[in-house]
Amino acid sequence: MVLPCAGPMTSHASEPVAPGDDNAHFGSKEDNLRWYREMLRIRRFEESAAQAYTRGKISGFLHLYIGQEAIAVATKELLQPHDQVVAAYRTHGFAIAFGSAPGACMAELYGKATGLVGGIGGSMHFFDRKHQLWGGYAIVGNHVPVAAGHAFAAKYRGESGVTLCFLGDGAVAIGPTHEGWTLAGLWKLPIVYVVENNLYSMGTPLSRSIPVEDITLKAAGYNMARERFQVTSVAETKARLGEAMRLAREESRPVLVELITYRFRGHSMSDPGKYRDKDEVEAWRRSDPMERTMQALRRLHGISEEELEAIDEEVIAEMDEAVRFAEESPAPAPEARFHNILAES
């Protein structure tokens, strides 16, 4: 008998879930202060980058993470020393959250010698091995099997490290993703695949790129565990992603996590984002995890306007300094273009 399919695409989760205001969504005052500051650091970094782009200081493609910061901040807090994070080209947030120097990140965008990868890669190719950021991949989906390879290496060596691989909803359709998932499932690799489903791949809404709305339904076919929720707070993201990482670490079970989130800016700086109407963006702004954390600080923890402003001023000063550092840094030496093409033995 032919069985019906999992459920065709009807309409998409293009409406944000209105998150509850109950305290369970939030952590302690210290947690919230830390999370807020970290999300703000990412946001202010990117706003500075966007300004620099507009002033012609940065070129190429610049994909902003604004709106999705809670994911990087939660991830940072879950990382253990031997874990690694592999992501695509919307990666500034991970670098800033993981501890890469904002100056080095900004200098990379400026194409300066002091950049994260010496000005060789730009925004789309962030790598900072020391801070557990293993890319930085700009060809959609081609990091998915590579990340499985990192997990393979950990298992091969009997190490406890877990690989976290982030990909966009748009990367779910492409072949390498499925080949990577097949091998991860088949070989029970210690990896968590996190689809950051921001509902669009460039101008394409989910309904035109994925036949079945719930991406995690694919997990069954790859023998992966699955988890799916909308990102409304660092606390919840951390708890649920943490459980996925525990499964991967302790039971060597690959897990497929779908995080429903939203980017407030265009796909890249050159995308005016005409395919989304204002109301939609506004609705999502109301569940912006950073904004909600700020509200929680006010409401639950009695943090004053002045205190919040002081945090912002510190963060802005930090990012101004990053811009200054990038501006004043030297361009790469001409001979740098010949370096690192092959390892020299």
């Binding site: 194409g111 060789i120 730009g122 001409p334 740098a336 010949f338």
Partner: peptide
């Protein structure tokens, strides 16, 4: 092109 992968930095790209 010079026989190198394309670097991002503007000054290097211009040389390649």
């Amino acid at each position: 092109y010079e026989d190198v992968p394309m670097p991002y930095a503007e000054n290097l790209e211009n040389l390649v």
